[in-house]
Design a protein around this nucleic acid. Sequence first.
RNA 1: GCGGCUGUAGUCUAGUCUGGUUAGGACUUGGGCCUUCCAAGCCUACGACCCGGGUUCAAAUCCCGGCAGCCGCACCA
Length: 582
Amino acid sequence: MIIMKNDEVMNIAKKRGFLWSSFEIYAGVAGFFDYGPLGAVLKNKIMNKWRNYYVVREGFYEIESPTIMPEEALKASGHVDHFSDPMTECKDCLEVFRADHVIKETIGSDVEGLDNDELSTILSDEQICCPRCGGHLTHVWSYNLMFQTLIGAKGKKTGYMRPETAQGIFIPFKRLLRFYRNKLPFGVVQLGKAYRNEISPRQGVIRLREFTQAEVEIFVDPRDKTHPRFQDVALDTLTLYSAENQSHETGLIKLSAGEAVKEGVISSEMLTYQLCLAGRFLKDLGVPEEVIRFRQHLPSEMAHYAIDCWDVEVETDRYGWIEIIGIADRTDFDLKSHSQHSKEDLRVFIEYPEPKTIKKMVAKPQMSKFGPLFKGDAPKILKALQDVDASQIAESFEENEMYEIGVGGEFYKLIPDLVDFQEVEETVRGEKIFPHVIEPSYGIDRIIYSVLLHCYQEDGDRTLLHLPADIAPVEVNVFPLVNKGPLPEIAIKIKDQMRADGFMAEYDSSGTIGRRYARSDEIGVPFAVTVDHRTMEDNTITIRNRDDSNQVRIPVEDVYQVIDDLIKLKIKFEDLETNQGS
RNA sequence: GCGGCUGUAGUCUAGUCUGGUUAGGACUUGGGCCUUCCAAGCCUACGACCCGGGUUCAAAUCCCGGCAGCCGCACCA
């Protein structure tokens, strides 16, 4: 039995307060995890680093919307109908199947969109039996992956826990568009909990029923998916596993971002830019490049509305390659659908660079004849007439001497006498379109797992977490070399000053100094300040670097600034060593 | 949701088959001694039979149910 890094890491995570399964004293519930004292800090630091990437540097403002959503909204998004699976169970062997899959496999017809009763009817009419044992299948029921709840005291309104944060961004689109002063492209982010009632969550923190997402929705002009700062990422190397590589089993390819766009492997600059950003983010979290790949969705697995979709995957010893970020071009599906369901116009007016003057024929009703003829119906006919292309009417006049127009179920005959045609010049300044959406969607819990897993290292007896200094939960430890004389007191004072300066600092005097360093390394504290005999002589302390155990000696009064620079990655520990040497 | 295996301190484990004294050990952790730089040593303390029911004079041990974990199947818009 190979000892998996996964097991070691999860062991430390539990023992030292990063992660553990929830409700343990009540035997736990599958699919729920607590973040412990260190885990919660780590998570916040990672989320804040993420904000620094997207909110600060990309300028995509963050919003926060409710985690409970009304049924209508999720009906529009497709989750009510499509996030549930029609299930059927074999009465004999108790195996559970997806009803639509069984039907498709047995009689070959596509039954997408049929409701449960219709599916049940097909099952019995076609005498479809259990694919495994040939037994009888039950009626079809829905297993919806969303947690359902009731809103209000009378509980009349059905609500669901949101299955993704994205919808919370699409719904207030009009307000967001206005906030961004009606101009594309713009991006909006949301970090928060999402909920999926997985049938059988089993892979620890990889598949949770309640999890944290960080999602970005970037609204772009569908005709222009170039990125203004593409040059900034064009030379980034991406390890790609394209749909073609997968179907031909040709392995991974390494391309620069620029090449990937040029060769059409990735569909747009916008999408590619996001892939690069995701890659950089992971590397900044200490996930090495060798374990990151970008896998394109196969046409068969891609949601029908997406035109290109890439998963960022990280390799793990326990679970293989796992998806931790999904980056999709969702086109205009969501906005269009919400537009239809809500009857709100969620389009954006895009101005042409130059106003276009177009000549067109318009039909001008002869009101003096029109009015008397149609009387009360005239206004609505006029209104309907506005939506009809004048050339169509002209054509119909030529062929049939009349044009029939339908208004609300009634038909009216127009004869050439009633309508004049005029050629007019019209200035068109732009047009209304549904923006396309580029969506990077991060699974924060999976990222935290990946970070812990790949920052974990064994070095002889020593185990350490190579967390980047700016995400390490405890930033600095302060130790007295021995518990004698004034050393503890000085160390405590330094620790207190560190805390006053805003550092996550801890003091530890228990056991030998070696044991304290070991404890410190195990949770990835990047630096340790040690107070020793020389501190009393010349007021200096040592700073120990977690990653190589090296130490440099500096004056006590400098320690706060130096630690600050180290934690914020402004200087490297090696620079201190060099300075000291000179 | 189905089937198989498993469940003893924070961790690893002895004991379970064959029911019987105060559930034993190691590591970890807390306190103390020692110790002037990387899990040393000594003393000391805390800490467990997954939950519920049954059988029995007696259950960690046998039986049933539940829960959780692992493996396989299914599921994963």
